[in-house]
Design a protein around this nucleic acid. Structure first.
Lengths: 225, 225
DNA sequence: ACAAAAGTGTTTTTTTTACACCCATGA
DNA sequence: TCATGGGTGTAAAAAAAACACTTTTGT
């Protein structure tokens, strides 16, 4: 009933990490790493995603959401992917099904660094408008994560998760414009956003800026994040 | 790098099939079957889901959408599930990760029947309000499918996929009310729905009904379904 | 003629969009 | 004092919600 050995399929979890630097939406890319870390037997998928995220960012308790599972039989079969897998995996020929999560982090909280273990080379932020060709089907995965983020940003108020603790409404608007891929009207945006319970104006202003400083706001969480 | 043998994880695909009988939303349940059919190595996940659907319904080319992947380490570990798995699987102890799809069919097109192979006993429609305790985490899976259907019904115009070729606006409204779990206003509903391109009024009325017969409509597809 | 459900428009409310000028700051 | 981007309100349009009576049919 179960798959005989010759049809074993590996399963893995991946995490597409988004961050916003005030100008562009970025995604955290790992170069020269196994596409997917090992997947301990006793871990839930959510826990595995959280671990993957932690390994790249040292962050804990971060927003994470499963968005799609990629399982095309040929997804790890491109010659260059195979060449590399052979150097790194016991069973490079095996089909891999990957459960993809996306995650929203405050870029300031992440100090891009090598993962603690062996093979990692670099972890770096890349503007989503400038993503190079990635290994496997990781371009598709990023696009999938983006699509889901776009769908959920407004209804789930996810924008705050991508901004620093203190932010301006202009920053928030800019982020929305980038994710939603359309211009928003400044006054209407502020009208809407100021209705939200969770948006708390601070008695503080931007600093070190060569124009009228903008007011800072914070986001009040209901629960620890 | 890959999982050593002792940590092999089986992967499977499941399909939650919804149908509407005019009164209630129903889900197609298979009793006494392996929770998940075997998963050939060369099949895409989408193809596997289509095959599973075909095996239960003999239907082809049906709306199918992946909605979530279930992978809790204990999800096949309940004693009664294990007892039964042992009679049916070579590796009942293995963890199983299941990629879940949901599907919308016209109930009239399905003649519930046993699947062609061995172990199937029955395939039957059950009102979603009356779903018994199912094996494994299948209750959760159905709830997840329902949730996704509810999210997508309106924006994706999915209602038509659950109705017969010819249907009345009352039927359509009733379906929406059940899926969305709220009453809709008859006049507003018709106003909205009549704006849709794809809704074609027929020169036909309901028949054999002891009151004013309702007009029939059909849904015009852009593409073969 | 009656029961039963089908069918039909208008008004009100809410939400969304469009739009332009003054303000505070640092250089 | 000037350049820069921050900040503000109102009116029009569109969308959504509320609401009740007439019609057609079979018995």
């Amino acid at each position: 009933m179960s798959n005989p050995d010759h049809s074993i399929i590996d399963i893995s979890v991946t995490c597409t990490v988004f961050g916003f630097d005030g100008q562009a939406l970025n995604v955290l890319l790992m170069r020269q790493r196994p596409p997917v870390p090992d997947f301990p037997l006793k871990e839930t998928l959510d826990d595995a995603a959280a671990r993957v995220l932690y390994e790249c960012t040292e962050l804990d308790g971060i927003f994470l959401q499963q968005f799609y599972t990629f399982g095309h039989p040929q997804r790890v079969r491109a010659p260059k992917d195979q060449d590399w897998l052979k150097t790194v995996r016991a069973h490079p020929e095996r089909r891999v099904v990957t459960v993809a999560y996306y995650s929203l982090v405050k870029m300031d909280d992440v100090s891009p660094r090598a993962a603690p273990d062996s093979l990692a080379q670099t972890v770096e932020w890349v503007d989503i408008a400038k993503i190079p060709a990635l290994a496997f089907d990781h371009n598709k995965i990023v696009v999938g994560g983006l699509k889901r983020l776009k769908e959920q940003l407004t209804s789930e108020n996810l924008g705050f998760k991508l901004l620093p603790e203190k932010f301006t409404l202009i920053q928030l608007q800019h982020l929305y414009e980038i994710v939603l891929e359309r211009k928003l009207d400044k006054r209407n945006f502020r009208k809407t956003v100021k209705k939200m319970q969770h948006l708390i104006p601070l008695d503080e202003k931007e600093d070190g800026v060569v124009r009228k400083p903008a007011q800072l706001f914070k986001y009040k969480r209901d629960f620890p994040e």
